[in-house]
């Protein structure tokens, strides 16, 4: 089962009832520095998990591991549906990560970034669905401007738009409210709430208002220096 790619935020993704995102004994080192040590967690369909921890405790690294964008140096992470693990390729199609470290293409416009992502992932985004997404993140009037001219808060909205564009069953948000104003924070709340009916959501944050969206929290102990 491969997640369908649709750029329409108005069109709900098919809910996968028995979906689980699992990390089992996961470790990750960067050279001699061990950032994640033997960590295990599970998130099920309809659930929102907040990952909390001090700076350098490995929150962003954990989200990349869960997204399949980083290989663990020990243990493993996987996505399973109805008790069966999905393939690496299916998992790639099912997960999306929005993080401060992810930049859109600055010389492309917002609409071009969305069209690129949609086309590259195998969808055929039409003008209407791109317009819907731009409206969702409150950037309709800037959709045809290169994102290089955007403020940091607007760039964060672009990251959120790129992440939810695929309506992924596994949505991973790293510091989603960073740089956002009140309206932007309301957008994050809307996205997280919508994700409950689409699959699982993991939020890495030290912001109490972001953590409040979650059903439970997972705290990473220590920091990278510990």
């Amino acid at each position: 089962m491969t997640a369908e790619f649709t750029l329409s935020p108005e069109r709900p993704a098919e809910f996968i009832p028995e979906l689980r995102l699992v990390a089992d004994g996961v470790s990750r080192s960067f050279g001699p520095r061990k950032v994640i040590r033997s960590l295990s967690l599970e998130v099920a369909s309809g659930e929102v998990l907040a990952v909390r921890g001090a700076n350098g405790s490995g929150k962003s690294t954990l989200l990349r591991l869960l997204a399949g964008l980083l290989r663990p140096t020990g243990g493993e992470t996987w996505v399973e549906v109805r008790g069966r693990r999905v393939s690496r390729e299916q998992r790639w199609a099912m997960a999306a990560l929005a993080a401060p470290a992810i930049q859109p293409y600055l010389h492309l416009t917002l609409a071009e970034n969305l069209r690129f992502l949609g086309a590259a992932r195998g969808g055929a985004p039409d003008a209407g669905s791109v317009a819907d997404l731009c409206r969702l993140v409150g950037l309709s009037d800037r959709r045809d401007e290169p994102v290089a001219s955007f403020s940091s808060g607007m760039l964060q909205r672009v990251r959120l738009a790129l992440a939810v564009a695929a309506r992924p069953p596994v949505l991973l948000l790293d510091e989603p409210s960073q740089c956002l104003d009140g309206e932007g924070r309301a957008l994050v709340a809307k996205i997280v709430e919508a994700q409950r009916s689409a699959g699982v959501c993991v939020i890495a944050t030290n912001d109490d208002s972001d953590a409040a969206f979650a059903d439970r929290s997972f705290v990473l102990e220590g920091s990278a220096d510990a």
Binding site: R64, A67, L69, E89, W92, A95, A96, L97, A99, A101, I102, Q103, P104, Y105, L106, F116, L117, A120, R121, L162
Partner: peptide, 16 residues
């Protein structure tokens, strides 16, 4: 250098 690598990794398979 521009931080778009992670976006590209999410957008397209390595072979592409």
């Amino acid at each position: 250098e521009s931080g778009t690598e992670l976006l590209l990794r999410q957008a397209a398979r390595p072979e592409a």
